[in-house]
Protein backbone atom coordinates (compact mmCIF):
# COMPACT_ATOMS: atom_id res chain seq x y z
CA UNK A 1 0.00 0.00 0.00
CA UNK A 2 1.13 3.56 -0.71
CA UNK A 3 0.93 4.46 2.94
CA UNK A 4 3.94 2.32 3.74
CA UNK A 5 6.13 3.92 1.09
CA UNK A 6 6.02 7.29 2.87
CA UNK A 7 8.87 7.88 5.27
CA UNK A 8 8.13 7.95 8.98
CA UNK A 9 8.22 11.74 9.64
CA UNK A 10 5.85 12.42 6.73
CA UNK A 11 3.60 9.65 7.98
CA UNK A 12 3.46 11.13 11.47
CA UNK A 13 2.61 14.56 10.09
CA UNK A 14 -0.13 13.16 7.88
CA UNK A 15 -1.69 11.09 10.65
CA UNK A 16 -1.61 14.08 13.01
CA UNK A 17 -3.40 16.21 10.45
CA UNK A 18 -5.93 13.47 9.83
CA UNK A 19 -6.60 12.98 13.53
CA UNK A 20 -7.10 16.69 14.10
CA UNK A 21 -9.49 16.88 11.16
CA UNK A 22 -11.54 13.98 12.53
CA UNK A 23 -11.66 15.47 15.99
CA UNK A 24 -12.92 18.81 14.75
CA UNK A 25 -15.64 17.03 12.79
CA UNK A 26 -16.66 15.17 15.94
CA UNK A 27 -16.81 18.47 17.87
CA UNK A 28 -19.03 20.05 15.23
CA UNK A 29 -21.39 17.08 15.64
CA UNK A 30 -21.41 17.46 19.41
CA UNK A 31 -22.95 20.92 19.11
CA UNK A 32 -26.20 19.36 17.92
CA UNK A 33 -26.33 17.29 21.14
CA UNK A 34 -27.77 14.24 19.47
CA UNK A 35 -28.56 11.62 22.14
CA UNK A 36 -26.17 8.63 21.92
CA UNK A 37 -28.94 6.23 20.84
CA UNK A 38 -30.50 8.52 18.23
CA UNK A 39 -30.91 6.86 14.83
CA UNK A 40 -29.84 10.17 13.32
CA UNK A 41 -26.24 9.20 14.04
CA UNK A 42 -26.74 7.31 10.78
CA UNK A 43 -25.81 10.17 8.51
CA UNK A 44 -26.91 8.77 5.18
CA UNK A 45 -28.30 10.24 2.02
CA UNK A 46 -31.29 8.55 0.40
CA UNK A 47 -33.33 9.29 -2.71
CA UNK A 48 -36.99 10.15 -2.20
CA UNK A 49 -40.00 9.56 -4.45
CA UNK A 50 -39.32 12.83 -6.27
CA UNK A 51 -35.78 11.79 -7.14
CA UNK A 52 -34.33 14.28 -4.63
CA UNK A 53 -31.33 13.34 -2.52
CA UNK A 54 -32.36 13.85 1.10
CA UNK A 55 -30.87 12.97 4.47
CA UNK A 56 -32.33 10.21 6.58
CA UNK A 57 -32.97 12.87 9.25
CA UNK A 58 -35.32 14.89 7.03
CA UNK A 59 -38.01 14.77 9.72
CA UNK A 60 -35.78 15.45 12.70
CA UNK A 61 -37.66 17.65 15.15
CA UNK A 62 -40.94 15.81 14.70
CA UNK A 63 -42.17 12.35 15.76
CA UNK A 64 -41.79 9.91 12.86
CA UNK A 65 -43.09 6.46 12.00
CA UNK A 66 -40.51 4.40 10.10
CA UNK A 67 -40.86 1.10 8.33
CA UNK A 68 -38.97 -0.91 5.71
CA UNK A 69 -40.81 -2.44 2.76
CA UNK A 70 -40.60 -3.05 -0.97
CA UNK A 71 -43.06 -1.68 -3.47
CA UNK A 72 -43.63 -4.84 -5.53
CA UNK A 73 -44.51 -6.90 -2.45
CA UNK A 74 -47.83 -8.57 -3.20
CA UNK A 75 -49.54 -9.02 0.16
CA UNK A 76 -48.05 -7.81 3.38
CA UNK A 77 -46.48 -4.50 2.33
CA UNK A 78 -49.76 -2.96 1.17
CA UNK A 79 -51.08 -4.04 4.57
CA UNK A 80 -48.09 -2.35 6.19
CA UNK A 81 -49.06 0.92 4.51
CA UNK A 82 -52.71 0.52 5.40
CA UNK A 83 -51.78 -0.29 9.00
CA UNK A 84 -50.02 3.07 9.25
CA UNK A 85 -53.08 4.74 7.72
CA UNK A 86 -55.37 3.01 10.21
CA UNK A 87 -53.14 4.24 13.02
CA UNK A 88 -53.30 7.74 11.62
CA UNK A 89 -57.07 7.58 11.42
CA UNK A 90 -57.10 7.15 15.22
CA UNK A 91 -55.37 10.51 15.63
CA UNK A 92 -56.94 13.94 15.72
CA UNK A 93 -56.25 16.17 12.76
CA UNK A 94 -53.92 18.28 14.92
CA UNK A 95 -51.97 15.21 15.98
CA UNK A 96 -51.78 13.92 12.43
CA UNK A 97 -50.39 17.23 11.20
CA UNK A 98 -47.37 16.82 13.45
CA UNK A 99 -46.63 13.18 12.63
CA UNK A 100 -44.27 12.23 9.81
CA UNK A 101 -43.82 8.88 8.06
CA UNK A 102 -40.80 7.48 6.26
CA UNK A 103 -40.97 4.15 4.46
CA UNK A 104 -37.59 2.82 3.40
CA UNK A 105 -37.25 0.44 0.47
CA UNK A 106 -35.21 -2.74 0.89
CA UNK A 107 -35.28 -3.18 -2.90
CA UNK A 108 -33.61 -0.03 -4.28
CA UNK A 109 -32.80 -1.80 -7.58
CA UNK A 110 -36.44 -2.18 -8.54
CA UNK A 111 -37.96 0.57 -6.40
CA UNK A 112 -36.97 3.56 -8.49
CA UNK A 113 -38.16 7.03 -7.55
CA UNK A 114 -40.91 6.69 -10.19
CA UNK A 115 -42.04 3.39 -8.69
CA UNK A 116 -42.14 4.90 -5.20
CA UNK A 117 -44.09 7.93 -6.43
CA UNK A 118 -46.54 5.60 -8.18
CA UNK A 119 -46.96 3.61 -4.95
CA UNK A 120 -47.72 6.80 -3.04
CA UNK A 121 -50.27 7.85 -5.65
CA UNK A 122 -51.87 4.40 -5.64
CA UNK A 123 -52.32 4.59 -1.88
CA UNK A 124 -53.41 8.27 -1.87
CA UNK A 125 -50.57 9.17 0.46
CA UNK A 126 -50.09 12.75 1.65
CA UNK A 127 -46.61 13.70 0.33
CA UNK A 128 -46.37 16.62 2.75
CA UNK A 129 -46.01 14.32 5.70
CA UNK A 130 -44.80 11.09 4.14
CA UNK A 131 -41.66 10.11 2.19
CA UNK A 132 -40.82 6.89 0.44
CA UNK A 133 -37.07 6.57 0.05
CA UNK A 134 -34.50 4.27 -1.54
CA UNK A 135 -31.08 3.99 0.13
CA UNK A 136 -27.84 2.93 -1.52
CA UNK A 137 -27.72 -0.85 -1.65
CA UNK A 138 -24.54 -0.80 0.47
CA UNK A 139 -26.31 1.07 3.31
CA UNK A 140 -29.30 -1.27 3.62
CA UNK A 141 -27.90 -3.66 6.23
CA UNK A 142 -26.81 -0.72 8.35
CA UNK A 143 -30.26 0.86 8.27
CA UNK A 144 -31.95 -2.48 8.95
CA UNK A 145 -29.49 -3.04 11.81
CA UNK A 146 -30.43 0.22 13.46
CA UNK A 147 -34.14 -0.60 13.33
CA UNK A 148 -33.75 -4.29 14.21
CA UNK A 149 -35.31 -5.32 10.91
CA UNK A 150 -34.43 -8.63 9.27
CA UNK A 151 -34.72 -9.21 5.56
CA UNK A 152 -33.63 -11.75 3.01
CA UNK A 153 -33.79 -11.54 -0.74
CA UNK A 154 -35.30 -14.67 -2.29
CA UNK A 155 -34.19 -16.18 -5.62
CA UNK A 156 -37.38 -15.05 -7.38
CA UNK A 157 -36.69 -11.41 -6.50
CA UNK A 158 -39.10 -11.24 -3.59
CA UNK A 159 -38.07 -10.63 0.00
CA UNK A 160 -38.80 -12.03 3.39
CA UNK A 161 -38.70 -9.24 5.92
CA UNK A 162 -39.84 -8.21 9.36
CA UNK A 163 -42.91 -6.00 9.22
CA UNK A 164 -42.02 -3.62 11.99
CA UNK A 165 -43.26 -0.06 12.43
CA UNK A 166 -41.01 2.07 14.61
CA UNK A 167 -41.88 5.30 16.40
CA UNK A 168 -39.09 7.88 16.62
CA UNK A 169 -39.24 10.89 18.91
CA UNK A 170 -38.13 14.36 17.82
CA UNK A 171 -34.46 13.50 18.41
CA UNK A 172 -34.57 10.17 16.59
CA UNK A 173 -34.79 7.93 19.65
CA UNK A 174 -36.80 4.75 19.10
CA UNK A 175 -39.69 5.05 21.55
CA UNK A 176 -41.76 2.03 20.55
CA UNK A 177 -42.38 -0.44 17.77
CA UNK A 178 -45.08 -2.81 16.67
CA UNK A 179 -45.23 -5.88 14.46
CA UNK A 180 -49.02 -6.06 14.51
CA UNK A 181 -50.30 -5.67 11.00
CA UNK A 182 -53.81 -4.97 9.76
CA UNK A 183 -55.12 -3.71 13.08
CA UNK A 184 -54.34 -1.07 15.67
CA UNK A 185 -51.85 -1.99 18.37
CA UNK A 186 -53.35 -0.08 21.30
CA UNK A 187 -50.07 0.28 23.18
CA UNK A 188 -48.29 1.54 20.12
CA UNK A 189 -51.08 4.02 19.37
CA UNK A 190 -50.82 5.30 22.93
CA UNK A 191 -47.06 5.79 22.48
CA UNK A 192 -47.67 7.71 19.25
CA UNK A 193 -50.22 9.98 20.93
CA UNK A 194 -47.89 10.60 23.87
CA UNK A 195 -45.01 11.51 21.55
CA UNK A 196 -47.20 14.10 19.84
CA UNK A 197 -48.06 15.94 23.03
Amino acid sequence: MNRQILNAPTMILVTMMLSIAQISIARAGDDQVLPPDSVYHLQLGVEDQNGDLIQLDRYKGQPVLVTMFYASCPHVCPMLISTIKILESELTEEERDQLRVMTISIDPERDTAEKLLQTMTDHSIDAHRWSMVRPDHGDLRMIAGVFGIKYKKLPGGEFNHTTRIILLDRDGIQLANTEQIGRVDANFLEAVKTSLR
Binding site: V76, K150, T163, I181
Partner: peptide
Protein backbone atom coordinates in the same frame (compact mmCIF):
# COMPACT_ATOMS: atom_id res chain seq x y z
CA UNK B 1 -29.95 -10.07 9.78
CA UNK B 2 -31.15 -12.23 6.89
CA UNK B 3 -31.87 -15.17 9.20
CA UNK B 4 -35.57 -15.20 9.76
CA UNK B 5 -35.35 -18.63 11.37
CA UNK B 6 -35.79 -17.37 14.90
CA UNK B 7 -39.38 -16.31 14.80
CA UNK B 8 -40.39 -19.34 12.75
CA UNK B 9 -38.62 -22.17 14.46
CA UNK B 10 -38.44 -21.07 18.06
CA UNK B 11 -42.07 -20.23 18.54
CA UNK B 12 -43.24 -23.67 17.60
CA UNK B 13 -46.54 -23.58 15.83
CA UNK B 14 -47.00 -19.96 16.78
CA UNK B 15 -45.26 -18.42 13.82
CA UNK B 16 -46.95 -15.20 12.90
CA UNK B 17 -46.83 -15.39 9.15
CA UNK B 18 -47.74 -11.76 8.85
CA UNK B 19 -44.39 -10.86 10.37
CA UNK B 20 -42.88 -11.72 7.05
CA UNK B 21 -43.57 -10.26 3.71
CA UNK B 22 -43.15 -12.48 0.67
CA UNK B 23 -42.80 -16.17 0.12
Amino acid sequence: SAFLVSADNREQGGADELQFCGA
